[in-house]
Design a protein around this nucleic acid. Structure first.
Lengths: 127, 127
DNA sequence: CCTTGACCTTCCAGCGACTGGAAGCCCTAT
DNA sequence: ATAGGGCTTCCAGTCGCTGGAAGGTCAAGG
C-alpha cells in the first residue's frame, strides 16, 4: 500500500505520516523502488495516532500510548495517568483562555467602535 | 535606563525586550558603550505590549494596536475590529479544547486505573 | 517509443513567540 | 589585578507539522 492510500485509510496526511516515520512512530516497509509499503498494522497505528492527536495528546504521549497499546501486559493505571495529566493540561489551557476572554469581552463591549479615537480597549492597555 | 531596569518597570523580560527590538516593536537608543538606553516612552510601550500579550493578542496585532495607540486620529472601530477578531479566535480555541476535554474526561472516568490491561481509553483510540 | 501527468522520494525552510546558552565586552568594587 | 555582575551578539531549540523545490517512478495514451 502506498502512502496516499495509507493516508486515506488512516485519516493522517502523507506529510504527517512521513514526519511520524522520521521520529520513529511508524516503520513502514520499503518497496524495491524506494516507495514506502504500508501494512494494515501500520495503518492501524496511524489511525490510533490520529485519534490520540485529535484528543490533544502530545507526540511523546502518543509514543507512550502506542507502546502501551502494543503491550498486552500493560497496567491501565499507566494509561490513566497519562490521560489524567493531559486532562489537567487541557483544563489549564482552558483556564488561561477564559482569563483572557473575560476582560477582553468586557472591553469590546465597552468600545463604541466608531470613527472617534476614544477607546476603552486602548486605555486599558496603556494603563 | 538599562535593559534590566526597563524589564523591571515594564514587566517584560530582557530576552523578550531584545526580541521585540529585533522585530521592530521598540527602538531604544544606544549608549556609547553599546548598551541599550530606554526612555520612559520605551518602557510605556513595553508595558503596553505586555498587557496586549497578556490578553493573548498576537505580535502583529500588537504592532497594529501600538500604531493605533500612537495615532491620535485613530478610529476606535479599527481597535474594536482587531479585538473582536481576536475574541473570536479565543472562542474557537476554547471550543476546540472543550471538544477534546469532553470525550477525554469520560474515558478517564471509565478507566479502572489498576494493574490489568483492559482500558477504555486504549480501546477508544484503536477503534 | 515518447510524453504526459500523477505519483513518490528527500531535503530545506518556516510557522509563533520566545527561551537557553555560549562567548565575550564593560563597569564597578575591592 | 581581579572578581562579580550586567551587558552584547548569535545560534539552537521548542512543537507538530506544512509548503515547496528538485528529481525519480510508473501507468496510460498517442
Amino acid at each position: 500500500m502506498n502512502i496516499s492510500n495509507a493516508a486515506g485509510r488512516s485519516g493522517v496526511p502523507p506529510k504527517t505520516i512521513r514526519y511520524y516515520e522520521e521520529i520513529g512512530l511508524v516503520r513502514p516497509l520499503r518497496q524495491a523502488n524506494g516507495y514506502r509499503a504500508f501494512r494494515d498494522t501500520d495503518v492501524h497505528k496511524l489511525a490510533f495516532l490520529g485519534h490520540a492527536r485529535a484528543l490533544g495528546f502530545g507526540i511523546e504521549d502518543c509514543r507512550a500510548l502506542l507502546a502501551l497499546w502494543e503491550n498486552e501486559t500493560r497496567a491501565s493505571a499507566e494509561v490513566k495517568r497519562i490521560a489524567t495529566e493531559h486532562l489537567a493540561t487541557i483544563d489549564a489551557k482552558i483556564a488561561d483562555l477564559r482569563a483572557m476572554r473575560g476582560p477582553l469581552a468586557e472591553l469590546v463591549e465597552a468600545c463604541a467602535g466608531d470613527d472617534r479615537p476614544e477607546c476603552p480597549i486602548i486605555r486599558s492597555l496603556e494603563a
